[in-house]
């Protein structure tokens, strides 16, 4: 059976590579800004690159803030990538404070390495970095990975979930350990880009689809 995947389009960032990864796995992919399409999906993905506040503004404009909350309430799987992860938190410190989707309690902060005075750790972090298990990955979408696997990251902000139990993996940049993926009920989200992390990364989408098709 083909998985019906809706990639949520709120006119920010590039959806091509996420679509490419899902199609590579044989999914039936729809890119849509419509709440109705979203609610009909078996799987939904919230991608995104860009500014948190612009993203929230666009999600509101498309009626997708309520749409995503309603979708999550159905218990169907939602996956977030990069900014898509950050948007799920309660709020971001970008430009003062911006409210997020508040699906996961916690906040979003900017990397700040200015106190190092050596300008070694640039912001955004743009690099392949390792992920480490912060709770067992068995029966999670990361079960195909092992601690120390490299994934592709591009971000200036990182998430701080209020509940450590939501943290699925950690990564480290400039000596700062931060949350690089979360699993919270039917929500799975990564700070890194699995669709840009080679076939190892694409496998994460496959695991996410597989795990959720069982339940």
């Amino acid at each position: 059976m083909k998985h019906r995947v809706v990639i949520i389009d709120y006119h920010l960032g590039n959806l091509f590579s996420v679509k490419q990864a899902c199609e590579h796995l044989g999914c039936d992919v729809t890119i849509s800004s419509s709440k109705d399409d979203l609610l009909e999906a078996d799987y939904a993905i919230l991608p995104g690159v860009g500014a948190f506040s612009d993203a929230m503004k666009n999600l509101h404009a498309f009626g997708l803030v309520d749409g995503i909350r309603e979708y999550v309430a159905t218990g169907k799987p939602l996956m977030g990538v990069c900014l898509g992860l950050q948007l799920m938190l309660s709020h971001s410190t970008e430009f003062g404070q911006t409210e997020g989707l508040d699906l996961i309690p916690g906040r979003v902060e900017k990397f700040d390495f200015s106190s190092r005075n050596d300008n070694v750790f640039k912001v955004p972090q743009i690099q392949w970095n390792t992920i480490a298990e912060s709770r067992p990955w068995k029966d999670t979408p990361l079960q195909c990975c092992k601690s120390g696997d490299f994934m592709y990251f591009v971000h200036s902000y990182y998430v701080i979930p209020s509940d450590d139990a939501d943290v699925l993996s950690q990564s480290s940049y400039g000596g700062l350990k931060y949350c690089s993926s979360i699993l919270h009920r039917n929500i799975f989200a990564t700070q890194f880009h699995p669709e840009k992390s080679g076939l190892y990364g694409v496998n994460i989408y496959a695991e996410w689809l597989k795990i959720n098709s069982k339940s």
């Binding site: 050596d118 750790f121 743009i126 690099q127 490299f150 990564s171 940049y173 400039g174 000596g175």
Partner: peptide, 14 residues
């Protein structure tokens, strides 16, 4: 690079 500092989590891209 400065000696005595850890840059382990700085990963160079080729």
């Amino acid at each position: 690079m400065a000696v005595g500092q850890s840059f382990d989590d700085k990963v160079i891209r080729v």
